[in-house]
Design a binder for these strands. Sequence first.
DNA 1: AACAAAAATGTTAACGTTAACATTTTGAAG
DNA 2: CTTCAAAATGTTAACGTTAACATTTTTGTT
Lengths: 338, 338
Amino acid sequence: MNRTPNLLEVAKAAGVSNMTVSRVVNNSGKVSDKTRQKVLKAIKELNYQPNLIARSLARKKTNILGLVVYSEKGVHPAFYNEIINGVQQGASELGYDLLIFANSEKQSYSDRITHSSFVDGVIFMGVKINQNDIKNVHEKGFPYVFVGKREIEGINPYFISPDYIKGTKMATEYLIELGHTRIGLIGQSRMIEPDYDKLLGYQEALYKHNLVYNPQLVFEESQTQLDGYNAMKELLKQKPTAVIINNTYSTIGATTAIKEEGLRIPDDISVIGFDDNQELNEQFNDFIGLELSTIRIPKIDLGRQAAKMTISLLEGNDVSQANFIDLQFIKNSSCKKL
Amino acid sequence: MNRTPNLLEVAKAAGVSNMTVSRVVNNSGKVSDKTRQKVLKAIKELNYQPNLIARSLARKKTNILGLVVYSEKGVHPAFYNEIINGVQQGASELGYDLLIFANSEKQSYSDRITHSSFVDGVIFMGVKINQNDIKNVHEKGFPYVFVGKREIEGINPYFISPDYIKGTKMATEYLIELGHTRIGLIGQSRMIEPDYDKLLGYQEALYKHNLVYNPQLVFEESQTQLDGYNAMKELLKQKPTAVIINNTYSTIGATTAIKEEGLRIPDDISVIGFDDNQELNEQFNDFIGLELSTIRIPKIDLGRQAAKMTISLLEGNDVSQANFIDLQFIKNSSCKKL
DNA sequence: AACAAAAATGTTAACGTTAACATTTTGAAG
DNA sequence: CTTCAAAATGTTAACGTTAACATTTTTGTT
């Protein structure tokens, strides 16, 4: 590795002072055209690139966003990976890079993040978030955003979350407007916030249209294909005319169950899924020849917004604490008018 | 954000010099026990954390690894995400963090990477790698590792790659030893290096056991469920007794085709898949009640090794340029002795 | 008690930028 | 050809650490 030139060497080569070079590099301040050309020439000749570490030290700003993903085995589910890609895009669009903090479950990040001055702000996400980290960062006034929605005792955290309530309500209403009244819901949960919100949205829609909530049409947590399959088998005994299913894997299992019972989509039952795993969703639909209507979680956009929100915060702008991002309803041919 | 204390403030509080504090913080040099205690007390009281930017500038080393993933739409397939997780783990184990470079397809990274001194080394991966980036970095002697295997004109790059040849050979031989001679291969490709290597491994195994290579048993690129399904339908006309399928999606499609034809696994046909998407593979197997024998790509380990290799390089150790990581053959019940 | 060697601690100048202020140059008006 | 403001350029001291070397203190030996 051969040494890289620094500002002063460029300055010397161009016959100007350090600050003139700095001004040219940063396109700030006033520099005459003639001088600028000289400097640019020297920069090019020496192949100068500013040393970002030194710049960060002087500016007290790194233009780097931290990302902490709390996950179980150090492997993030596909769901988070897509959000991360979005975060990266959003950061990049505003001139920031992304520093992924190593995720050892035990370790607490907050001091490392706020004191080491390696990042200007931080984004938290994951199932097993450490509430203390968020609390500490919040209390120190360090810019951060939490992706998701969770009660954190004592504080009102900055967060951005998909609006599952609204999204599910919208989908449910769509079914109601098609004339459905016996609508199943696979995957509610009192424990998992997003799934609980789906239940709330579902209930709100029923309530709004004066339909009675029937717990027999609603099934607990459903994560895997098998969960979805089993739940659907049970649900079908209740003769529903439509069903909303909380994730891609369950949907695959559930539609398999529907087929097995000799029922057709949408003729015998209307189906709406969540495409939390878009790649899989598409693959599956293509293959089965199913054109599933889905509630889409705009994950890339979610990540992008999270990045922009964090940057907005660290730049000192006013940012509201609670932020929601709308789900998209992708209307397709898996639902039928009754 | 309240100011964080620096070394000198700690030094003042402890009544010692900056270097004594530095030595305590870094656990280097000699410090008497009494002094160490004083310093530690001051550090604790002021809640001091070293400023990593300043440290990096002074040490000319950041303890950060760069990661560039070249991908099409800025979204990485599940495959890469798992490797990234592994890279992160490996880096973390050796005290490094991971800086993800924003990935705009157009941009060239090499100068930014080598000159900005934000990273001590860099890892490249992705389908659409920029050969020039790697070439530049290579020629500058900047520590890097490429995850994958690709000819790059004019240089012998540092790389680490799954050994697809060996892995596929192993699986093929396993089938041959079970007595199979009509073994199908779904997903060879002249264009995609890993898939080409799978073909080579397959051929090597046949050759070794004096079996004739029959192109009619071998099918082109197969990425999706539908590809796998179609290929298998065709293949079945050739009456194979076993088949190796190049990725998880194809495998799902292919097994569907097998079922549709009324054949049973392993009684009528033995099947070996690649579980490049492990989560999906498991889900699918659980659901179908299939116990698929698979060739497993140890992605986490691949990433981890890539990180360690890069760090070894940047620490000045001798590292061989070409590195392969063995695939694992997960023996299960989807293959039968003939 | 004197001395050397080892241990402990300290001083100073980098590292490569930028911020803040200082100085010089330019050019237009009188 | 002054004069003065604006424009252009320069100087210096941070930023918070560590490397390299310098000094002081301690310890053991005679």
